[in-house]
Design a protein around this nucleic acid. Structure first.
Lengths: 137, 137
DNA sequence: CTTGTAGCTCTAGTCACTAGAGGAATTATC
DNA sequence: GATAATTCCTCTAGTGACTAGAGCTACAAG
């Protein structure tokens, strides 16, 4: 039987976050000690590690809820789980594309600035005048 | 003299967002009509376009506040403005790196899944068992 | 038995908006 | 000039995934 602090140390998920996940329905409400403190078992450890892992991959809570639900029906086809992952992958790729555009624009603006006064500062001027930009954003 | 709606149409910034920017101190409190409605001038249009542009580049509100303050001292050196942009560029690059790692991990997980049952689903298994991952995350 | 740590609940704060309620002002139409 | 439609006002609360803090209780060590 683990306390919430033990669970936290073993999974790297902070104590308030564990309580938050319980509230969000990602983990079942834990059993309690006589003094009303949460007590966990190995099962909960695994569940929380799963959640942690999915969060690290950037999945949001509704997606994780879905994956947990799916994982409890081992006999179903896994197309749905694959779809959740694939959709997330698309979203990640889109974000990368957007950020790359920003990266290039920022590089360009910065490299154009000669570093003298604000009056001539290309950073400020580029922000003031969209016409100095390349591409749309 | 423009109404808030006119300003919104011309800059692409939504009406409530304009009011929000006023509240955040990014734009000065506008003059009011007799009936207490905001009235704007060309100056405000330019300021708002500047803000919009900076937000599109991903700068946060405190950074924009700083840039606005700087832009009002044309005689100062522009090192500070450049630094804000350069710091933001670093942050953008870090995000890209993190997302690329996620992208690869997701690709790997998805490609390993044979698409049959949840029981064997690599997506679910990879989440359950960190040992199946490459790299740290 | 006391002290210190860890636990409990509940509320509010983060960021940059967005949505909605309930009411007043302005503009367009008749 | 009356009415209707649209826009505007303020204020509050909600978003996601936590995080911080207040005020209190439980438990372990010495």
């Amino acid at each position: 039987m683990l306390s919430i602090g033990d669970l936290s140390k073993r999974t790297g998920v902070k104590v308030p976050t564990i309580r938050y996940y319980e509230q969000m329905g990602l983990i079942e409400a834990a059993e309690r000690s006589e003094g009303n403190q949460r007590r966990y078992e190995r099962q909960d450890l695994e569940r929380l590690a799963f959640i942690r892992h999915a969060r690290d991959l950037g999945l949001d809570i509704p997606a994780i809820r879905d994956l947990i639900a799916l994982s409890q029906h081992p006999d179903l086809p896994c197309a749905n789980a694959d779809r959740i992952a694939a959709d997330h992958l698309s979203a990640v790729r889109e974000k990368i594309e957007k950020l790359k555009k920003l990266e290039h624009e920022l590089e360009r603006i910065i490299s154009h600035c000669d570093g003298h006064s604000i009056e001539d500062c290309y950073v400020i001027r580029a922000l003031s005048d969209h016409g100095l930009c390349e591409g749309e954003h």
